[in-house]
Design a protein around this nucleic acid. Sequence first.
RNA 1: GCCUUCUUAGCUCAGCUGGUUAGAGCAGUAGACUGUUAAUCUAUUGGUCCUAGGUUCGAAUCCUAGAGAAGGCGCCA
Length: 478
Amino acid sequence: MKKSRVKIGSLKNINLDNNICVKGWVRTKRQGKNVTFISLNDGSTINSLQVVLDMQKFKIELIEKINTGSSVEFSGNLIKSQGKIQNYELDATEFVLLGESDVGKYPIQPKKHSLEFLRDVAHLRPRTNTFSAIFRIRHAVIFSIHKFFNDKGFVNIHTPIITSSDTEGAGEMFRVTSLDLDNIKNNKVDFNKDFFSKEVNLTVSGQLNAELGALALSEVYTFGPTFRAENSNTSRHLAEFWMVEPEIAFYDIIDNMNLAEDILKYIISYVIKNCFDDLEFLQNREIDDEKNLPQIQRNEKPLIERLKKILNTAFERITYTEAFNILRNSKPNKKGKFKYKADEWGMDFQSEHERFLVEKHFKKPVIVIDYPKNIKAFYMRVNDDNSTVSAMDVLFPSVGEIIGGSQREERLSVLKERMNEMNLSEKDLNWYLDTRRFGTVVHSGFGLGLERLMQFITGMKNIRDVIPFPRTPGNCNY
RNA sequence: GCCUUCUUAGCUCAGCUGGUUAGAGCAGUAGACUGUUAAUCUAUUGGUCCUAGGUUCGAAUCCUAGAGAAGGCGCCA
């Protein structure tokens, strides 16, 4: 009788001395004269299963074909382990080698690889402990986001990936076309002949479409890929990344801040509860990694403590003007330590300023609101002072801006005026303005960068290591 | 896009102010040993020193250009 497969992650719920079947990929093999030990992982947990092969029960030629990277099905008894590291192990009675692996050519060796090298073999890096942990956590984060919104009665709206609006000014866009680019007549592109009869691009944000949903369904969110063709070469930027964008009718900026703080805490507490083993692994990895760094460059607290601290900390909420004054009067500013001096109200904060506020001054997440209107987008609601808008940025330690959002401008005349100021075409956005023409309401929303949040939760320093297949300038493999 | 640094074996790295035949650990291979834990021990294979020019009697090492990578900055999430 063929036994059904048990995932290695569920073995802790199974009684010892049960006969079971497991399938997975070999991490390491230690072959001996009497017994061979195999460390088997199937991706369900960071803890690989030790499989013990009694050499007298099997042909040695068959055992020799089992190598790092090969896939094997083992059947046997789950028994108490004689080893010190694991509580139980599989005493194999039979096995089937499902897929061989040429260990001389398999790039993932049973040793520590650099993250840079693993990026080059991104198609195989999920086979490592680090990346399987990260991708399990990523799943938990995604799932918790949907659960958070679902439990609150939000409706998930799929906003389009291909879009004709390039109004947001959120960055350079990727052009989408079905034209034969090798045969353009007169070097002049006629978009009337293109698939959509107009110029279209990959979306940089689902916000404007989400607003349409909010002004009908009250509470909505989009969660999808967004694309920026900016030539950004940093450890915090991707050309293709995932963004969560809730949009809520009848919410003002205070409600908006509360929602942002709530969801971040919810996600983090969900991950601590459901991915503790993986977090612990990443925490130890980080500690190990930082041993080679000078004290100043190390994290003050281990990963899990940093996450827990977020849960029991009320985020600091300040206005742009308050933040500006703190920066202007700060020591580094007076001593000229900032690369960009904070001396003129209206300036945009640079990452060094954000880092000072979060890491040095308040030592906790900070929400900055009421930014000068000149440095913010057209759809943000103009405050009564007529010089600031009801924008909010949530700043996190180490990753910086993790959320950007605002109360939206619901007054048709003010919105039109702002679009005029910024030279945006009313005609192209008529569909958007209709929401203000017919039953407009106060509403708010924000965008949460999934990968930025992932960086904070996993402690990974480079954003390319928290997404399975990173897209960056000059890099689109796999 | 800008600034800085880096590129040596499959991987992680050493290689001094230019000087003969470029080294180590791991992986691989052969063997030994063993309830092991990234097992251990012995032996051993393996190199377009990123690429193209240049300087020099002589270049992994110095210079120029290019490619790729990392960190920082800007744009932002």
